[in-house]
Nucleic acid binder design. Structure first.
Length: 744
RNA sequence: GCACGCUUAGCUCAGUUGGUAGAGCAUCUCGUUUACACCGAGAGGGUCGCAGGUUCAAGUCCUGCAGCGUGCACCA
């Protein structure tokens, strides 16, 4: 094969992504342009340029990169690179999350496996030390993986949820919300995980279908049903709907005597609308200490609330002869005794119902009454700073109201729009948030006790005998502060003034409730600003058949494998094209392979264009009308791409460049110019050369946000270029090309 | 149960105010010419889930239904 005249030696074929990507990464790192300060310093960005900022949703320190991360990184990096090239002062701030529950249970698991010890055997200090070692080691892995996707993150601003600045932010936030009366301590029913021995927030609960026997029991004159006979010892209230005709003769507050598990008891009739007339006999007994609904009924009627089961699932003395036993073991024995006493009417062996479990790898939730710290979402406070429309400074408001107004007023736009409905529904039904966790790893609650005294502050109070609360904060509390804690809050830093509110929050729709809502309420309270102007919710990455990727199905596609085999550019594109905002994406290896071919195609287009022997002295100032029209077409495409990105339709933008570069530029424009290039008309040849060169430049720029590696690698081969790195070249604009003064 | 989403070529999906159905992959045929076989030229393939309605005109708007998916709520 005859080599083309002008092709640089290392412009090898085919395109070797592995080799080039490593080179480009070090080139970018040396350039330092991911840091907006460097861009301003080196004159790439105007000092007073408009800002564009994104804070990376921090991956779990102990995790490894999965396709969901890869999609997130691709989307955010496209937005970032595009705006940087457009001249915005652009910041993409990286970070990692300590993920308290997940991390602590992982370390505890290892501890038990390797040394047969529990955290109580080694103590708090010791466990935290081990967690530290563990997180430090795995932090490096995840950071390296983030980089390999081509993410142009500003590592000089890296934040970790447990580092000093963030710790201070969390403490300050807690104290301020406590002082405003929003954070309070109270005995309420919580979701208790007996396995991990901690409370769990409502959002972290996952309902799982389970089949259990369903027991119909004779409770005096009534028939009641239950899957959990072991909770029934304390049941001394019998509830029915006030309008239920069948039970008209029973009056609210009436007392009846009946024989129960451990002997005769006195039961009180309660009429409450919570009883469903359609279900079973329409009558139920309640266990207020171990059921949210029962607890609410008890509160409405001011009833006694007696615990039956302890933290570990052991029956309390109220269970009589069964006290001290674990509920699982006691259940069949209790049923047997009831049957013996004639209290068991019948059993439905295969009753399907939903059981609450801790989605963070914990056990089955047992509701318990506990003294915990809470964030009150309906508590009124006076807002001290506000830039949010419809929330005037100094007005009285609540966190719930803030959530509503922030989105209603369009200060925050949620995309896709349909999630706004979900958001409002959720925000309206929000309950107080249980903040305290009985974990050791996390931000410790800044409250100290001495006898009946309670002190909340940043530092331990003066004097002897104070003891700090032993609990830590729910990990989402610190996450809620993320857009501003990462910028240095509570200090009034330059970064905070420049980059907050952030422009876009990009994350999976599955954590809308966990995270997005908390960020909004906490950010408006603390800074008076919304945390972000746009919420971009991406879908789940599924396998080729639309199934969730999971270990048990063995259908996980590992992004790092894809990078090794097909390159990061191909991996990125496969996650963008066809992925409309908010919709799940079906990803197969074939897709990724297809885009690898595209990377190679771009490489070859460049070889062809650059390989042309330039007739330098003959390059005209003006192109042939025909070539000029082709250039104008490219600029129309640039405008179209910009428009798609500005409206967050990255899928359409990517598809449009892909189609143009391959099927218009390569298949038609280049093919049709071959004849002219071979001819001996120097003016026509020069015009073609210039046109091809210009279109190549435009194509590289348009492709760069989507496929940063190949495009940068080609840019490095250009004989002359406007900037050393394509990463900071100017986004196509007609005035900057050979096309001057002509309307596009 | 309530809410939301999806249903368009074999597969994955576009189709922005209604105006003659589109792309990529896959399939088949042909082809080595200034880059690229990780390529090029061409072809076949769709009653746009079903049933109504509005309209001169519906993949697009309205109503109902079905299948699939997701979220929320749940029954003691």
């Amino acid at each position: 094969m005859e080599p083309s005249k002008n092709i640089p030696e290392d412009f090898l074929k085919p395109y070797n992504s592995l080799e080039q990507e490593a080179k480009m990464l070090s080139l970018w790192e040396a350039g330092g342009y991911a840091n907006p300060d460097v861009c301003v310093e080196k004159g790439v960005t105007a000092a007073d340029a408009e800002t564009f900022s994104i804070v990376l949703p921090p991956p779990n320190v102990t995790g490894t990169l999965h396709m969901g991360h890869a999609a997130m990184l691709a989307i955010e990096d496209i937005l970032i690179r595009y705006h940087r090239m457009k001249g915005f002062k652009t910041l993409w701030l990286p970070g990692t999350d300590s993920a308290a529950i997940a991390t602590q249970s992982k370390v505890e698991e290892t501890l038990y496996k390797e040394e047969k010890k529990t955290r109580h055997d080694i103590g708090r200090e010791n466990l935290l030390e081990r967690i530290d070692i563990f997180t430090e080691a795995s932090k490096a892995i995840i950071i390296d993986q983030l980089k390999r996707m081509g993410s142009s993150l500003d590592w000089s601003r890296y934040a970790y949820t447990m580092d000093e600045t963030r710790y201070k932010a969390v403490m300050t936030a807690f104290v301020r919300m406590y002082e405003a009366g929003l954070i309070y301590r109270g005995d309420r029913i919580v979701n208790w995980d007996p396995k991990l021995q901690t409370t769990v927030s409502d959002e972290e609960i996952e309902y799982k279908e389970q089949t259990d026997p369903f027991y119909y029991l004779q409770y005096g004159p009534f028939q009641i049903a239950t899957v959990r006979p072991e909770t029934k010892f304390g049941d001394k209230y019998v509830v029915m709907h006030p309008d239920d005709k069948r039970y008209e003769q029973y009056k609210h507050g009436e007392v009846i005597e009946l024989e129960w598990i451990n002997g005769p008891i006195t039961a009180t009739i309660i009429k409450d609308k919570a009883a469903d007339r359609e279900f079973g006999s329409g009558v139920m007994t309640i266990t207020p200490a171990h059921s949210l609904i029962d607890f609410e009924i008890a509160q409405r009627h001011n009833l006694d609330i007696e615990p039956v089961i302890d933290d570990r699932g052991i029956l309390l003395p109220i269970a009589g002869e069964f006290a001290g036993q674990h509920i699982k073991k006691a259940r069949p024995m209790i049923v047997a005794k009831m049957a013996e006493k004639g209290l068991l009417v019948r059993t439905d062996e295969k009753y399907v119902h939903n059981v609450a479990t801790n989605s963070r790898g914990g056990g089955t939730i047992e509701p318990q009454i506990k003294k915990q710290w809470w964030l009150g979402v309906d508590r009124e406070f006076t807002i001290n700073h506000s830039e949010v429309p419809s929330i005037p400074l100094g007005s009285k408001t609540t966190l719930k109201e803030i959530l509503k107004i922030a989105v209603e007023s369009k200060a925050i736009q949620i995309m896709p729009e349909r999630f706004e409905k979900v958001y409002f529904h959720w925000a309206e039904n929000l309950r107080d948030w249980c903040l305290s966790r009985q974990l050791w790893f996390g931000h410790r609650i800044p409250v100290w006790y001495r006898g009946k005294e309670v002190y909340c502050g940043l530092e331990a109070p003066e004097g002897e005998g104070w003891e700090q609360d032993r609990d830590t904060l729910d990990t989402w509390f610190s996450s809620g502060l993320w857009t501003f804690s990462t910028l240095g809050w509570p200090n009034e830093t330059e970064d905070l003034k420049t980059y907050h509110p952030t422009t876009v929050l990009e994350t999976g729709y599955d954590i809308l409730f966990f995270w997005v809502i908390r960020m909004i309420e906490m950010t408006v309270f603390h800074t008076g600003q919304v945390p972000f102007k746009h919420v971009y919710l991406h879908g789940l990455v599924r396998d080729g058949q639309g199934r969730k990727m999971s270990k048990s199905l063995g259908n996980i596609i590992n992004p790092l494998d894809m990078i090794e085999k097909y390159g990061a550019d191909a991996t990125r594109l496969s996650l963008i094209i066809g992925a409309q905002i908010g919709n799940d994406l079906k990803l197969s290896e074939d897709r990724v392979r297809g885009y690898k071919h595209f990377a190679n195609k771009i490489w070859n287009i460049a070889r062809f264009v650059i390989g042309e022997e330039p007739i330098l002295d003959l390059i005209p100032n003006e192109l042939n009308p025909e070539d000029e029209e082709l250039l104008r077409e490219a600029h129309r495409l640039a405008a179209e791409i910009s428009n798609h990105i500005d409206t967050f339709r990255l899928d359409l933008a990517a598809d449009a460049v892909y189609h143009y570069v391959w099927h218009r530029f390569a298949d038609e424009i280049i093919e049709e110019s071959k004849a002219t290039l071979k001819s001996d008309n120097p003016t026509a040849r020069a015009s073609k050369q210039l046109m091809l060169h210009e279109i190549l430049i435009i194509s590289l720029k348009l492709l760069h946000p989507f496929m940063p590696f190949v495009t940068e690698a080609i840019w490095q081969q250009l004989p002359s270029k406007e900037s050393n790195l394509l990463m900071v070249a100017k986004w196509p604009h007609p005035a900057q090309s050979a096309l001057r003064g002509e309307p596009v």
